[in-house]
Amino acid sequence: MKKLIALFLLLTMVVGLAACGSTGNNETDDQSQDESDLAYVEGNGKLIIGYTDYAPMNYTDESGTFTGFDTELATLVSEKLGLEPQFVEINWDTKEVELNAKSIDCIWNGLTISDERKATMEVTQPYIKNAQVVVVKEGTEYEDTSSLIGKNIAAEQGSAGETTIQGDDNLKQASYIPKTLQTEALMEVKAGTADAAVLDLTLANTMTGEGTNYKDITIVDKLAEENYGVAFRKGSDISEEVNKIFDELVADGTMAKLAEKYGLDLAQ
């Protein structure tokens, strides 16, 4: 009888300890879920910034220096947040997957603000104006997008350029060539394998015309005006803090000087 009582008490203790352990784990899990995104990056001491090679926003110049408007701005904002900026090159087509997997903390790379993106990510207020433009080789006959019906047209996959093509009745009748980067779409036009490309105005202004490697490529049409924002995980409280810093940088003239340096226009 004593042995049965002892065994019963032992089993009771084991169950009790297991229950305590389970409760502790649940509390830890709850704390992890309740932790703000800002607290998460502060705990890491760094802000991991997802980007692609895209002049004049993030790129490596002729001297081998990694630079650009977004590169400088993200570095400045990170410092004001007390964080070390860490730039990680990403595949633009899987940017949201990487963001949600926490392999990056934000997408800071000339991201066009759209309702679709705002529904799945926390996007900052607009900070730079942009537009989608059509570029062709000089001498190409072009009146409007109807000139490209049945022709080959390139754009970056998953970009605003692709969305513009899909939303234009004439461009939808062209043969679409999806590329990994906007610069690759530009190369298609230079090589003659595409008759035109739809690109960000910011990139086209920087990379085409006299003094560039694409001096024989020109902008012939502006299709859609838009704004850039920085994207964080949905519900992230970092976005609000970045907006406050943006306001400070606009008020003291820092943002305007940086935009002038890279030939960009601030969003209103």
Rank of each mutant, 00 (worst) to 15 (best):
I90N: 12
E141R: 01
D61F: 08
S239K: 13
L99W: 11
A39F: 03
P85Q: 09
K102E: 13
E241L: 02
E184D: 11
S22Q: 09
T124S: 04
L186V: 04
Q33R: 14
Y51V: 06
I165T: 12
D61I: 06
S147M: 01
D168G: 13
A204L: 03
E248W: 00
I165N: 12
V14H: 06
A119R: 02
E162Y: 06
D29P: 05
W108A: 07
N152I: 05
F66T: 07
A185V: 00
V88T: 14
D70H: 07
A224G: 13
D93P: 08
S36W: 00
T67P: 07
N170M: 02
D34L: 13
T124A: 00
G139D: 02
I48Q: 06
L266Y: 10
L76T: 09
D168K: 08
L223I: 02
A160P: 15
Q86I: 05
A154E: 07
G82C: 12
K244P: 03
T140I: 02
L258G: 09
T164D: 10
G82N: 08
A259G: 07
G50N: 14
G16R: 10
D37L: 14
G211C: 05
T212L: 03
T254V: 07
F66H: 08
W92N: 13
I113E: 08
E42P: 01
L38A: 11
L266K: 13
G235H: 08
G50R: 11
G82P: 04
N213K: 01
L10H: 01
T212M: 03
A55C: 08
L186T: 01
I107H: 12
L203Q: 12
T164K: 00
M207A: 12
T23H: 14
Y176G: 12
T75A: 12
I107Q: 11
Y127N: 05
G209R: 02
I219S: 06
T52C: 14
E226T: 15
G16L: 15
K257S: 15
D168V: 13
I49W: 03
S22T: 08
N109D: 08
E240I: 06
A74Q: 01
K222R: 06
C106R: 04
D70R: 15
E116W: 07
G64F: 02
N152R: 08
G24L: 12
E225C: 10
D105P: 11
L76Y: 09
Y214D: 01
T112F: 15
P56A: 10
A196Q: 00
K129D: 15
K2G: 11
P56F: 01
Y54N: 10
G82I: 08
S63W: 04
G263R: 06
G82T: 13
L266T: 15
A224N: 11
A131R: 05
T183W: 07
A18R: 06
Y40C: 08
G158F: 11
V136A: 01
T71S: 04
L17S: 14
L7N: 11
P56H: 03
E79L: 01
L171C: 07
Y214P: 02
T202K: 09
